[in-house]
Design a protein around this nucleic acid. Structure first.
Ligand SMILES: Nc1ccn([C@H]2C[C@H](O)[C@@H](COP(=O)(O)OP(=O)(O)OP(=O)(O)O)O2)c(=O)n1
Length: 1171
DNA sequence: ACATTAGGGTAG
DNA sequence: CATCGCTACCCTAATGT
């Protein structure tokens, strides 16, 4: 994983786009060099921790190839001695790593692959690394030779295991039964000395196909073991054949006609295959297409006739379509076979069902042909339940990485190389997805060792973080024993002494004010300049803008002549901006006031890695910049004076500024930010020289605010902006129409609006001779439109092309198209202070985010129907703690949007959806570094109320003519509706509307909640299993934990993929309790106590002034509320939110049972009304 | 073909 | 102690329908 980054870096720096601050460094380089000459080289390090990290990674990984791996292996080694169930496993894990490196050298893979391979080595799915799954005979002999041997065999085993790891095609019930069998058999195996691999394998096959393969694989492995004497020269073909065999059994369900291949004895296959291999190799010297008959290409586009059936719904249609294509494939293969009787394509991919994702090196159509010609199945659409055995991809977005976690994802070269080799190569040598090594460490003791290493790693890079890492260490030890969780769960239901003890911790908690603290958001936003900046802007864009529209309209009414004038072709646009706004105001506010023309000042929170929000021009001349870290700014400018933020004053002064602007007879005014506005003063400038106007404005503002502004003027927004830049500081400038091109010639490309560091970098490649000097707009003008479009895409290319010619048709006319300026989304981003240990903490936080979003939506007077959760995840190469305190460091981003089905801003709905999405994304809690939540598809509240009278109804349905959750049919098209998906496991009851369904079908809450979260059994009946184990609905956890930890992890991942509970419920509880626990538990959740620690204050919880101690009273109050609400035609939104809050806290403090008590009571009440 | 989604980039 | 790395909008590429 580390290597991956480095590799990316090596190849193209600009590809590193997933970092939150990807371009800080280049920005520094680009601008820093221009604005100041002094030492920007080594300052790089301070400027952004990410660069630091990358550098270090570089050194570590490239300086000494083996460093990291060795560290890992020694970790693993020391883990290995812990307890015997895991000894061999871990010990072998180390050896596997060692072998792999040898292998790389010997196999002489090409450079790229080499790097990746090594990276991916660690990332073999755990089950495949699963060394304890080796039959004990593989462990013979401590000497090197046999060790190598063993490893080779392991590899092959892995292959088999992985191939048969066809979880995806099992339904949940089958899967559970598989897990249980696995567990059961393992405990037998402990005594009988058999390997897991075989058993797993068999079980799997049994489950899938009802075919038993009692000992075949065993025999196979055994024979390998006996025969193989050249360890690094594994008899691949044999393995392969066995693999084929194995696969064929799995694949039998779908095609039975190739049995002969399977039945060919291993040895007899060997020769023909080698021949094939040679033949193939020849062909592969040529482009891939040469492999394929020429008719193929035409064939491809051809037969649509089959699809001309009438299909029912879309899903069926696609199923049918899929089937149709499969047939086409078969026909095609037959055709080719007949056409090329001389050459046969070895059925390398027999049993493989392969899906190709995204761009690949041989492109998808080539791969398609290659796959089907070589006996594989090509999957045109990846269904939700993965039928695919492999996914081929050369790149994966972070999102896809998560999605495909539990698939075998291989690079396209796997296909190509396998064909070249004439046999199926180990997919794991071509794997693309890395499994985070850290995942294993969560659950067992040796993890602590791992942590320690990470800590020292971290500390080495960044001594300041030792304490934090240390803290984490102890935290982790807490986590070690999975069984702890069970006892701890009981605390949720019966808070005991321990809870009280931790309550005291709560009070001391602010020791570290991170996102776990209930008040975090409040304090964070209060101090965040960027938050202020954003919210000021939105305020201006709503409040001020509507006021301005009103004022301007009124004026226009009274002075109709301006209407005519405003039609004039040539407009006069001005851009006005305070000079270093924060710095100026803060200097003014400071006691005693500071002369910003002499003293270098900046506004910052203080500290080494704190951002400089704004610095004055004195400081800028010494190399400081807005957004730079204070540490670096200080280094550039040692006598820099730091000033505090004065948010209120910024706001106050801004208001004066805008009042002044609005006092002019403007055609339009558009707020750009707190300190910056665009005005259209075409009419005014018919009678007034723009320069005079600018000077006047400048003077007025200075008088009123004692702060200087600069003004730029031009015929469009672009020119006004560039003129402003030219005018700064403390000046005015007008771009004359005649001089536009000349003016532009020397403007730097980077200073064009919308041109940031990334685009700039991209373009720098086009001007390699430019060296360090900035590319100018004049240079851009020499580029052809096509060139720009191919570089930047259709729109961006055209825009740049026009910009280079001074053309810009951006409208700031707020009067004629006000809708252009209405907001289209509301979002909350928090990428600082995000540190969680437990998924429950995240969910609590998401609840608070939901609340905040709800309030912002209320403030914005709108509702929405689509919500996006975006998570920042610590990049695998980034240290646990970044340089910036509680910062996010270098991150990967993953986002997922979901449709709410109705226009809403209801807290419960939002919260539930977010939590659900969070679970679906399955991000490792401890690596979470940022959370962002966006409501999209906004509709104004008024509009919504008009269109849907029932908007604010109770969150539960009442039968008959009573209250109903309803979707207004009139706006079906506008509302984003979820695809039919299973009922979410929600911890807090909330309606989930199935939009297309009749309202009447909505289950009452309680029933919804009691329903099994996934309708696991509805579709396919459970297949009988040869092993006479009782089929159960749940995992038998006791036995499950007998499995080696890696297998547990692997299975857990699969459970997670299925959204199944991946940890045991409370022991010995009555049945219904299990269900509730089940529902309340996220699949990834471990335990609950910590959240309780943080958020609970038992005594404090009350509802409507009634303490929880008088629970009955609360219940009757709620009943009253229902009665009232029904009479009043629905509850009030505020009440709903209060109630929701209460439920949340009740859940946190008293546990889910209480919540269900409440719900039951309420539902009973509702039933009364029904009758 | 067109709509939707995920990701990325930018500005202040 | 540190530190408060937000947020709306646009665009593109890849997918889904
Ligand atoms: N990375 C940034 C950029 C800006 N700001 C804040 C501080 C600035 O004072 C204000 C306005 O931003 P400007 O880009 O207008 O920069 P200044 O006003 O500071 O300087 P000038 O406009 O003179 O270049 O926004 C910030 O906090 N962080």
């Amino acid at each position: 994983m580390d290597l991956k980054l480095s590799q990316k870096q090596k190849h193209s720096e600009s590809q590193l786009t997933q970092s939150y601050w990807p371009m800080d460094r280049s920005q520094d380089q680009l601008e820093g060099d221009k604005e100041r000459q002094e030492g920007s080289d080594d300052d790089d390090n301070d400027y952004d921790d990410d660069d630091d990290e990358k550098k270090e990674e570089d050194e570590e990984e490239y300086g000494d190839d083996g460093v990291r791996v060795d560290v890992k292996s020694s970790q693993v080694d020391s883990m290995g001695t812990d307890d015997d169930g895991r000894v061999t496993s871990l010990g072998l894990g180390r050896r596997l790593i060692g072998r792999k490196r040898d292998n790389d050298v010997e196999m002489g893979v090409d450079d790229n692959d080499n790097e990746e391979d090594e990276v991916e080595e660690e990332s073999l799915p755990v089950l495949l690394r699963q060394p304890s799954s080796r039959p004990s005979e593989f462990l013979v002999g401590p000497n090197e030779q046999s060790e190598k041997e063993a490893l080779s065999q392991m590899h092959s085993q892995s292959q088999i295991l992985s191939q048969s790891q066809d979880w995806g095609s099992l339904n949940d019930r089958e899967f559970i039964s598989l897990v249980n069998q696995l567990s059961q058999e393992k405990s037998l195996l402990n005594k009988s000395n058999l390997s897991y691999v075989n058993n797993n394998n068999n079980n799997n096959n049994n489950n899938t196909t009802n075919v038993t393969l009692p000992r075949e694989n065993n025999t196979f492995l055994k024979s390998i073991n006996e025969e193989s004497d050249a360890p690094d020269d594994i008899d691949n073909s044999r393995i392969n054949r066995s693999l084929l065999h194995d696969l064929n059994v799995v694949g039998n369900e779908e095609d039975d006609d190739d049995d002969e291949v399977v039945d060919i004895p291993n040895s007899s296959l060997k020769q023909p295959q080698l021949q094939d291999q040679e033949a193939e190799e020849d062909k592969y010297e040529n482009p891939f297409s040469s492999l394929l008959p020429s008719s193929l290409d035409s064939e491809q586009g051809g037969g649509g006739a089959k699809e001309a059936f009438e299909f029912g719904d879309y899903a069926t249609y696609f199923q049918n379509k899929q089937a149709g294509q499969q047939e086409q494939d078969d026909i095609y293969v037959d055709f080719v076979k007949k056409a090329l009787q001389s050459k046969t394509h070895p059925p390398i991919f027999k049993g493989c069902i392969i899906y190709v994702n995204g761009k690949t090196n041989p492109d998808i159509s080539q791969l398609h042909k290659l796959i089907i010609l070589h006996g594989g199945k090509f999957l045109h659409y990846l269904g939700s339940k993965g039928a695919a055995t492999h996914i081929v991809a050369d790149n994966l977005t972070p999102r896809k990485k998560l999605e495909f976690r539990n698939y075998k994802v291989v690079k396209a070269s796997w296909i190509v190389e396998s064909i070249k080799a004439g046999k199926l190569l180990f997919w794991s040598d071509f794997t693309l997805i890395q499994v985070d090594y850290g995942q294993v460490k969560l659950n067992f003791k040796p993890a602590a060792v791992d942590e320690v290493v990470e800590k020292t790693d971290d500390a080495a890079m960044n001594p300041g973080s030792v304490d934090n890492a240390g803290g984490k260490l102890t935290g982790d030890e807490d986590n070690n024993d999975e069984f702890n969780e069970i006892s701890q769960l009981s605390h949720i239901i019966e808070p005991g002494d321990e809870l009280h003890a931790t309550d005291e911790d709560v009070k001391q908690f602010p020791a570290q004010m991170d996102a776990r603290h209930p008040d975090f958001l409040k304090t964070f936003f209060a101090k965040s300049r960027l938050h202020h900046l954003s919210s000021w802007k939105m305020d201006l864009r709503s409040d001020f803008l509507s006021k301005a529209v009103e004022v301007l309209k009124k004026r226009r009414m009274s002075n109709p002549s301006s209407n005519v004038l405003s039609q004039l072709g040539q407009r006069v646009i001005m851009h006005i901006d305070f000079d270093c706004f924060f710095a100026t105001v803060s200097a003014l506010k400071n006691t005693p006031p500071i002369d910003i023309n002499k003293v270098p000042v900046c506004v910052t929170n203080g500290g080494k890695s704190a951002d400089v929000a704004s610095c004055n021009y004195v400081a800028r001349s010494m190399g400081c910049k807005n957004g730079m870290w204070l540490g670096k700014a200080r280094a550039n400018c040692p006598n820099l004076v730091c000033l505090k933020y004065y948010f209120d004053d910024y706001e106050r002064i801004s208001k004066m500024f805008y009042d002044i602007l609005l006092s002019y007879e403007l055609d339009s005014i558009l707020p750009v930010s707190i300190d910056e506005a665009l005005i259209d003063c075409t009419t005014l400038c018919q009678t007034l020289d723009p320069l005079e106007l600018m000077k006047e404005i400048k003077k007025k503002v200075l008088e009123k605010t004692q702060c200087s502004v600069s003004c730029g003027c031009g015929s469009n927004v672009l020119l006004a902006k560039l003129a402003l830049r030219h005018a700064k500081p403390d000046g005015v400038y007008k771009v004359d129409q005649e001089n536009v091109l000349q003016f532009l010639n020397d403007v730097s490309f980077r200073s064009l609006p919308g041109i940031g560091p990334q685009i700039c970098n991209k373009l720098a490649i086009e001007f390699p001779n430019n060296g360090d000097t900035d590319i100018t707009v004049g240079q851009i003008r020499t580029l052809k439109l096509d060139a720009l479009i191919s570089l930047f895409g259709q729109k961006t290319g055209k825009t740049i092309f026009d910009y280079a010619r001074g053309k810009d048709d951006t409208s700031i006319d707020i009067l004629s198209n006000p809708e252009n300026f209405s907001r289209k989304s509301v979002s909350i981003d928090v990428n600082w202070g995000i540190r969680f240990d437990e998924p429950l903490e995240v969910e609590a936080f998401l609840g608070r985010m939901a609340k905040e979003l709800n309030q912002r939506l209320i403030r914005a007077r709108c509702v929405g129907s689509s919500i996006v959760l975006k998570l920042a995840i610590r990049h695998p190469s980034a240290p646990i703690e970044p340089e910036k305190y509680l910062g996010m460091g270098h991150c990967e981003f993953v986002s997922k949007s979901s449709k709410l089905g109705i226009n809403t801003r209801e807290l419960g709905l939002i919260s539930t959806e977010l939590k659900h999405t969070w679970r679906v994304l399955g991000v490792k809690t401890k690596d979470l570094r940022g959370v962002s939540v966006t409501m999209n598809k906004l509709v104004s509240e008024d509009q919504q109320v008009k269109e849907d009278v029932n908007q604010m109804k109770l969150p539960f349905k009442v039968n008959g003519k009573g209250i109903a959750v309803k979707i207004s049919p009139s706006k079906k098209n506008k509302v984003d509706q979820p695809k039919s998906k299973p009922i979410a496991i929600t911890d807090i009851p909330s309606r989930r509307v199935s939009p297309r369904k009749n309202v009447m079908q909505d289950a009452p809450i309680l029933r919804q909640l009691k329903v099994s979260p996934r309708k696991t059994n509805s579709k396919s009946p459970v297949k009988t299993t040869p092993v006479s184990l009782p089929t159960k609905d749940e995992i038998e956890w006791d036995v499950f934990y007998e499995l080696p930890i890696e297998i547990q992890e692997e299975l857990k991942r699969e459970m997670a993929r299925r959204n199944m509970l991946s940890s045991p419920k409370k022991k010995n509880g009555p049945r219904y309790r299990h269900d509730i626990q089940n529902l309340m538990q996220s699949p990834t959740k471990k335990k609950k106590r910590k959240v309780t620690q943080i958020t609970s204050q038992d005594n404090g919880l009350s509802f409507q002034g009634i303490s929880v101690r008088h629970f009955d009273k609360i219940l009757s109050k709620l009943e009253q509320w229902i009665d009232f609400s029904i009479v009043e035609d629905g509850p009030n939104e505020i009440d709903l939110n209060l109630f929701y809050d209460f439920l949340l806290r009740l859940n946190e403090i008293k546990g889910p049972l209480r919540v269900f008590g409440v719900i039951e009571k309420m539902e009973n009440r509702l039933h009364l009304w029904n009758c």
